[in-house]
């Protein structure tokens, strides 16, 4: 089992503190980061992967500082960005070939590996299509294919299910489950249904800090039996809203007669 440990991680953008003293231990399996927009999910993943420089703290992989590991760490890592950058003029095959070369995958295995990941995301038929002809969902699947290409040990997904149809979401879940025995998978999302049945660890973030970090069943047991009350603010209705409600009320009165 591999461990990716984030210790006292902090990140500051100018005056804004995006992360403050975050401590998380990611183990082999699926680790889900949940939180509202601006909670710090993407910042944590960017800091872990080295896309942005952290302001403080440490990130260790199996006890070794990842930023000292350099190339050895990067070859174990794969990151799917929220909006994955592509070369629109490339075909799916060419793009994955470039990714394979950058990831250091052997020349002999490149072709079979590309075909394998494309079949996993149901893009085998589009292997020679240009990316500029792809729909948003197809691009997202290609991004997933690029991330799992070469079977890296650490997989980071930032909002992976955005743009996927229900069938593809299930397919994505199946891929994650098949990989979770051998990889540290970190998925960031704010759609609970994407990860609730597959995740091993659930990390909930709020305003740059970890508010909960446990197995989902433990977290669910804590809230079991509680009732959510969502207060609605009373405000003055806008003229057209007033008209709408008046009309509805009138129609209801008419139907009762």
């Amino acid at each position: 089992m591999h461990i990716l440990e984030v210790k006292n991680l902090s990140k500051r953008y100018g005056k804004k503190q995006a992360l403050s003293g975050v401590n998380i231990t990611f183990k082999t399996g699926i680790n889900a980061l949940l939180g509202a927009n601006g909670a710090g999910k993407t910042t944590i993943m960017n800091c872990i992967s080295g896309v942005i420089k952290k302001s403080g703290g440490e990130v260790e992989y199996d006890g070794e500082d990842v930023f000292k590991m350099g190339e050895r760490y990067r070859e174990k890592l794969s990151f799917q960005f929220q909006s994955q950058p592509f070369y629109p003029s490339y075909t799916a095959y060419e793009f994955l070939k470039l990714a394979a070369i950058l990831k250091g995958i052997d020349k002999q295995n490149t072709d079979s590996e590309i075909r394998r990941v494309l079949s996993l995301v149901n893009l085998s038929e589009n292997i020679n299509d240009k990316i500029k002809s792809f729909s948003g969902g197809m691009r997202q699947r290609l991004a997933i294919a690029q991330t799992i290409l070469g079977s890296p040990e650490i997989l980071i997904f930032d909002e992976p299910s955005a743009g996927l149809d229900p069938f593809e979401r299930e397919q994505f879940k199946r891929i994650m489950v098949s990989l979770k025995e051998c990889c540290i998978i970190i998925i960031s999302t704010h759609i609970v249904s994407d990860i609730d049945t597959i995740t091993d660890e659930l990390i909930i973030l709020d305003k740059g800090s970890v508010t909960a970090n446990d197995k989902p069943e433990n977290l669910y047991s804590k809230i079991d039996g509680l009732v959510w009350q969502i207060p609605s603010e009373e405000r003055e209705l806008l003229p057209f809203e007033k008209l709408y409600f008046d009309l509805r009320a009138g129609r209801k009165r008419d139907s009762r007669r």
């Binding site: 896309v51 190339e71 909006s83 990831k103």
Partner: peptide, 11 residues
């Protein structure tokens, strides 16, 4: 942002 994406690969 391709440069950022490629920066975190082995190469």
């Amino acid at each position: 942002r391709r440069l950022s994406a490629f920066a975190i690969t082995k190469a």
